[in-house]
Design a protein around this nucleic acid. Sequence first.
RNA 1: GCCGGAGUGGUGGAAUUGGUAGACGCGCCGGACUCAAAAUCCGGUGGCCUUAGGGCUGUGUGGGUUCGAGUCCCACCUCCGGCACCA
Length: 812
Amino acid sequence: MDTNKESHPFRCCFDNNKQPFYSLGMFAYPSGNAHMGHVRVYSIVDAIARYKRLQGYEVLNPVGWDAFGLPAENAAIANKVPPHVWTQRNIERMKTQQFGPMGWSFDWSREINTCAPDYYKWTQWIFLQLMQRKLAYKAKAMVNWCDTCSTVLANEQVVNGICWRCSQPTTKRLMTQWFIRITDYAQRLWDGLQKLPQWNKEAVAVQRNWIGRSQGAHIEFVTTDKQIPISVFTTRPDTLFGTAALVLAPEHPLLQQIVAHTNNSKLQQYVQQANRKSQVQRMASKEKTGVATGVFASQALLDHQVEIWVGDYVVADYGTGAVMCVPAHDTRDHQFAQRYHLPIQPVVAPRPGQTADADDLFTQDGVLINSGDFNGMPSAQARQAVVERLQQLGAGEGTVQFNLRDWSVSRQRYWGCPIPVVLCDSCGCVPVAAANLPVLLPSDVSFDEGRACVNPDSAQLRVDCPRCGAPAKRETDTLDTFMCSAWYAFRFADPHNSQAAFDSNIVNRCMPIDFYVGGLEHAAQHMIYFRFLTKFFHDIGLVDFDEPVRQFFCNGMVRKEGQKMSKSRGNVVVPTQVVESHSADALRLYILSDTPSELDIDWEETALHAKQKFVRRNQTLLHAYLTQHPPKNWSDAPLHEATDKELVRTFYSLMHALQHNLNSNEFHNCVARIYELSSLLLTRVQQENTQPTQSELQQAILARMVRDYLAVCSLFTPFSAEELWHTFYSDAPLATAGWPRFDKKILQQATCRYVVQVNGKKRSLIDLPVDANKHVLQQRAMQDQAVQQALVGKAVKRAIFVPNKLINFVVG
RNA sequence: GCCGGAGUGGUGGAAUUGGUAGACGCGCCGGACUCAAAAUCCGGUGGCCUUAGGGCUGUGUGGGUUCGAGUCCCACCUCCGGCACCA
């Protein structure tokens, strides 16, 4: 794709006769070793890119490197090689020795690298934009801490309390950290999910889970002694009258104030213990524990007071960190109440008039009882009514709560994008002026003591405050690498822009991405951040659209013997070795065949051999044929004048089917069609090789078919297809030669195979002319021996006729 | 618990809108070539029955709708994945 501004100053870019198409595989971490996962992602992307090019689209198919991150730093520590050297070396290796030989049709002129200053300058610029709009902020908060990686992690990077990188348990720590206020966008991120029909369904579900929208209410309680207000969040305001207690998370901000005068040592002990427990420990014990505070609270609608408890089953950073405990209608509250003998008062009955037993747990909707004015109301109606009443009383309001938390982005590591902020004793966090970007990584760093240490006295860290000019310090935390990868797709559209992160006109033309490929594991992290930043760009007027990806395709993993390939298991199949032993075409054909690309595949050597055999046979036979019969006048050869009409018809109906498979991303079915095409074509070609019989016209037709075959093969076996094309047809790339075209008329058949059924059971097949009428078919069917046999002694009640398909005799 | 996906031969998996179940591969069996093997090529391959022609049966289980169900509806079972003391 040509997006060069200078060559098209007014329209900014693009061949106006062509539609742009942006295909993208998630960019790679430059570990130095390409693996089968890369082969799968980029082979899928490349098949589509080549398809779209043949169809006449102007295709943007770029590649780059997600180059910041821990492994480079760890390698620096282990090998005493600076991270940028290690990274650059890996990129060179992957590019030339590993990606290159695969023949993926990337536009290498757009290669980007997130650790290059001309890239991270703009990551910093974006951060400043967020900061300016108060969407990036520094705050003291409980964050996930990984000891092994000695850094903070985002919620998205902690799976069941375990660090996603090193698989060690994480703990919670109170730290001052940078956050991105992604929660401001929670509702829009939620709503946007409905507008993504071409996304992998599972990915949408993952996001829906992650954003986790709950409709409910805030309900205000107040302590009876000191009138301290306590707000709870609930999705079940209809159960308010069943409240037996208030339960606060041990970290609840008002807790110490509430219990200040009580001097409850048991309580203080409990709070300390809870804070010491790791997240894993706390989640592991499902037992509900807690301590009563001795302080009571009241609520405007309740005629009884409830005691305030502290329990670590209440999550501090969800909702308000406090819940109303309704034991009769919530599983957890029920367990808690049973343990501490709190009253269990049912307030929702399953059916009108039915009195619920005390102690029973009923969590579904029903009809209200024991709830004053609200008695008799169905739950759904009661939820509204209760909220309305609370609102009138100023004691609560309807609200929406999200699971999504703000994105913690600072990392206490060296090898990341520097946060462009100066820490000043009097001015606080002061953004670096945009004109002074990029803030370069400090070079005064040692990797000697098991971690990267920037010399704290380094002149590079001592700067003057941009606001007051007083001596100040640079922020040494770096940004989460997901920040770098949240906008790389935009940069690809305009990769060398030195004036801006990207030119809006160019990006508006190329994006949203038409076809994005990557693993499902990024559905919750990268894809949320990517969507968020797109909405932000939209809001500040940088782009016209607010969803970055039209079609999101999630590929499956490549396994071996049912297990993930990994060095520690010693079951890694190295792509470059397979290219050497079997060829890139065979590898690519193999990786795209036999199994739908969204499913996991298990590496199978025998199937790979078969693909190599196929490529070889194709090449040999076609080469021999084309040598004997150099293609002439093939481009407009009239297919309808073929003597072998059946060959042409079958061939192009397979082409038609293949295109259908391609449009649905069924690459394995495409390969099946290619096998069928080849079996047709090679049989014919072999005949010609041994005993040529064809007139020039017929040869031209066959040459046209061979060309069309090469065109579709070029998506799956580009090396051999391009080579034959180049040798016998044209010097121009096959990609520019056009997708096979043919008149649909040649697909029409003269005869049709009809199924004859008796009571829905197949009894015979009959060939008749297309569009034969029911009467003719019925007559012929009745003469059929097998049909007659099935009809013996039975009366035909009626016959169902489906044109060009079947006739079904219904007999009694 | 909630959400998403899937159950079809020995195996990976096909089957536009309900209309010939098992496309295309892998494996296996048989044959050709060879002194032999490898490689290559040709043929066969769901199960059961049958001398043949052919018949019966068959898409996780049980019902249902329909002339006709792998496909639609209801109930259930199993597996995979995601989320989760989220109130």
